[in-house]
Design a protein around this nucleic acid. Structure first.
Lengths: 152, 152
DNA sequence: GTAAATTAGATGTATGTACATATATTTGCA
DNA sequence: TGCAAATATATGTACATACATCTAATTTAC
């Protein structure tokens, strides 16, 4: 869908301004698409993101800070997301022996299981919806990274 | 900044998968950038978005449903955002005479004033940061709209 | 002409974001 | 060595999101 239709507006200062809004709208659209698939597993998009990060290092335990620096939305409150994953017994939280300030987290068997199934579903929906050539995806990645070139 | 650095990960299924994460990360980055500027005016990104929509039709009054269909994040709870704008006396809320189910909203003088100043600031920061050619922005817009082609 | 269905908006709840502050632990240096 | 600064995480608060439910008003359908 064209952005003009999606937000019922056609007044943009220029293509660059439109691009900003288009990125925000597309991000909302992707999150909504993923969240619909994750709902069946009782997971939110953010909980899924944390589980994926844990999977990347499994069976190693990783600390809260390390999850925080890998998460997409940097201002997420990681301890709170872990609270909910712990309640659902998808992760186990332990105080680190090496540094008692740290809390280390590890996936449980149930966590691995739910992640495997939900990842399969999420990948399928994305592959079926995100229908662009690798070449265009590469061009998109290059432009996004050029935009963020002066990131502080 | 490269996405690999931003999320400390370099394992993507393919360029298309990376593009999805890159869009999500860039959207977070843009919102954070804008929110920093808006903070000075005591506005959140979402409140700003609603004020902009009202400005687009000013001095006409528009109803809650119409704001909702123009907003970027479609699942926003518009009545609640309006609550906060009303408390700050930036908008006025009235029951519609034509259809008493509707609530119509209009910007106050204070609302117009704060919007003018904050828009100036937001546009400046975006122009100074989003440094890409119109041509590339156009290419970006085309690819994003191709991704959303099969939007339900 | 009235009852049922639809629509607009308000409100409730769980979760997340953004940011400030508190607590415990570790580090670094005088 | 001892104490201030830094670090890791937890917790508190205001606001937003996602979604369900409720109420009032309007439309429709018979």
């Amino acid at each position: 869908m064209k952005l003009e239709q999606a937000i019922k507006s056609s007044k943009f200062r220029n293509e660059v301004h439109k691009a900003g809004l288009n990125i925000l709208y597309t991000a909302w659209w992707i999150k909504t698409l993923m969240s619909k698939e994750l709902k069946e597993y009782g997971l939110t998009h953010e909980q899924y993101n944390v589980l994926r990060i844990l999977k990347g290092r499994h069976p190693e335990q990783i600390c809260v800070k390390e999850i925080a620096c890998r998460i997409i939305e940097k201002s997420s409150n990681v301890p709170r997301i872990i609270d909910r994953l712990e309640t659902k017994k998808l992760v186990k939280r332990t105080s680190s022996a090496a540094d008692k300030r740290e809390t280390v987290i590890v996936l449980t068997a149930a966590g691995i299981n739910i992640l495997d199934h939900s990842t399969h579903r999420v990948n399928n929906i994305m592959d079926a919806t995100f229908l662009i050539e690798e070449k265009k995806a590469k061009a998109l990645n290059d432009i996004l990274e050029e935009i963020r070139k002066y990131e502080k």
